[in-house]
Amino acid sequence: MLSDKALNEIHLIKSKYQDSRSCLLPSLYVVQKENGWISPAAMETVGELLSVPDATVKGVATFYSMFRREAMGRHLIQLCTNVACMIMGAERLVDILRDKYGLQPNGTSADGRFSLVIMECIGACDAAPAMLVDADLHGNINENTIMATLDKYA
């Protein structure tokens, strides 16, 4: 389910906190980084590792909207289409992603490489249009540069 690397990371997290519940959020980050999303089986694994009841893990994992609970592509594109980005041409970028990768909003490309989520402002209006790919912010993107940016994510 989880690689040895991920398991080691979780064990390291456990050594840093006194209370096992405190390890829950950082451990869920590790799972999401590893798998792209948090599956029910992964929740059970985390519950077992931390001695936190499964139901509690589920409660936490479903509370935070940035934890994904459906299978995702390897990389998550979070593209803003709020006012500033829309004026600067974000909707054209949505079209490009659909044409080039077959990516629909809230969908995943057929090769499992990218998933796309449309965001309502990611706080980067100064660099509009902007998107997050995984945890990286890319600003001032346009029709010409978006493909090159995404090429870096295999």
Partner: peptide
């Protein structure tokens, strides 16, 4: 027993076993 929890948030919150 910790068998149930509140899942999701805001108006979509409800109670569920794992």
């Amino acid at each position: 027993a910790s068998a149930i929890s509140m899942v999701n948030r805001t108006s979509k919150t409800f109670v569920e076993p794992f």
